[in-house]
Design a binder for these strands. Sequence first.
DNA 1: TTGTAAGCGTTATCAG
DNA 2: CTGATAACGCTTACAA
Lengths: 351, 351
Amino acid sequence: MGEKLTAVTMKTLANKLGVSVTTVSNAYSKPDRLSSELRDQILATAKDLGYCGPSAAGRALRSGKTDVCGFLFRGGISSAFSDPYSIMLLAGLSEAVEVYGASVLLLRAPAADEEDNQVVRRAAIDALVVGPTYGQESEIEALRQRGVRIVRTEPSPEDDWVTINDAKAGRLVGKHLAQLGHHRIAVIAPADTDEDVDVFDYSPDRLDSRITPQPWETERVRGLWEKLPGAHLQVALARDCTRQAGREAAAAVLDVQDRPTAIVALSDVLALGVWDAASERGLTPGRDISIVGFDDIPDAAFLGMTSVHQPITDKGRLIGRLAMDPDYPQRQITLPVELIVRSSTGPAPKN
Amino acid sequence: MGEKLTAVTMKTLANKLGVSVTTVSNAYSKPDRLSSELRDQILATAKDLGYCGPSAAGRALRSGKTDVCGFLFRGGISSAFSDPYSIMLLAGLSEAVEVYGASVLLLRAPAADEEDNQVVRRAAIDALVVGPTYGQESEIEALRQRGVRIVRTEPSPEDDWVTINDAKAGRLVGKHLAQLGHHRIAVIAPADTDEDVDVFDYSPDRLDSRITPQPWETERVRGLWEKLPGAHLQVALARDCTRQAGREAAAAVLDVQDRPTAIVALSDVLALGVWDAASERGLTPGRDISIVGFDDIPDAAFLGMTSVHQPITDKGRLIGRLAMDPDYPQRQITLPVELIVRSSTGPAPKN
DNA sequence: TTGTAAGCGTTATCAG
DNA sequence: CTGATAACGCTTACAA
């Protein structure tokens, strides 16, 4: 008994050394404001007493800085981890954020029907990275009012963003397929719905009426359509953005009389599923059927997938810089895209 | 001018409503301590004034709780994101942690030569998840002293952990290969070094002398060895735990006179690289050469990889529970492993 | 059911 | 170069 279990704080150090708390604080955050001998002495006693640096909470409360960058996931976190795109983005983001001595906090966006999500609102963060817009923006608004810097992956008037030109990406694919003589084309789009695979002839309105497409989806299809005048463009909705869903959606357009000669998946993960479906039917990609994806993820590149490359990791890095550095000059950035032609596309088979 | 830009706090609300700060606080954290009318009124004015809930910093400072679970990455964050194992673990972890209203903070473990990493020490977290032990444990020690709960993926006397029996996993593979009549076997192990691929005959000491293997590596090889008495066991070191590194390491053991009839990669990512290397040489896995991996990740399963399954996502979930719930009864858990035989293994070719 | 007062650990400000 | 003092926004005893 009589055992004193007080936490070691700056005060403890200050008392022990006969200096003020301010000086101890300065030893950590403002090294140039005290003699280096005193600083060394303070750091040494800190190690002695088992003091492990300024507490994040105290620091955050007083200075408002947390050195944490939030990353908001749409829907379940698991979905984000099953998508190489998110993961590569996250990798780049973490890398950049690290340079500023900060870390990344994973935040799950509340579902549209959730009242108000305390988890996101309460987050102690300096900046928040937001992916494709999701229904409920109120949490983001709340954070913005608290002074949290918002960085997006899609254009937004009031926030910073790093994006690509999705319409152009679509056009690159459209042009490529037109040159190869494709006329019957199917688009596989993620629907984020629980319903069965749905197939319909494309028109902008009809797409909007079936799902609430995210801007990048709308834009990609629009660009594609623009370069394929007169083509027969179908859309098949995939349950979600996974390989398996892509496979199922592809099955729906492949198992019919006049199957398309080319399938465009709105992301490479889906395209991999398309590849699976084609292979299972004895179709060789690039010869019997052309397959195109977007994003150019390694797994797809490895197989020889023709895809629209975007610098995902660089995008993440840039987002990280914008998030952590308020003085970074360019705050709304469009990154280049490029069509990488590989073996999965070829001339439309004549039959 | 004269514009007052004060942050909206509980005090603002309290003044506006003529109640005390305590009551406002209770409206958020202890709803049963005030009448529901008053609570509703408070929440309404909060929305009015644009108050977005208790600030994490204040809360953390006063109560000590942050509702954040740290996840410590070995080496660069990028490496963790390139490994499906880490990603699946993280997915399970996030899922569980979310249930407790908490989020996950990604922390990069400092390199062995870094003095003291403020980023990890300062982290405002309730619990820390630590993967395979890395050299410098002092950061972890510091956090433990601050009352941060430590959960590991490998057995540790003083902390909580969730692990698998790696030796048993190795034995399952050894037994399987023995039954198939394999005698010349190569093991691909990740070395985390920049040196060239190194190949040597296995013995426990020799492995330790070449690299500093992590416990799970040592155990897996030991188990394997145990069930393969008299076999010729080689070890090839891969640069890191990536598909490409696995491919390079496999090349080194395949391009020789008496190549092994079976290759055991210590993780499925490496095994995929082995598969690549074999295919490039016209060898069909399961017929011309047997390939076995560990972890049973989807990409490998898809190809037909024989692998030791471990419930990675469940492991993550369990770790999350241990991290967030101090009262969870079982605190040191070993999860089952199971050999899944697929097409990548077959009888040793006689030649 | 509500209020009062103290203090969590830090940093900003200003004075020596 | 160093120090005293006052917040930062919240929760927690305890008191009413």
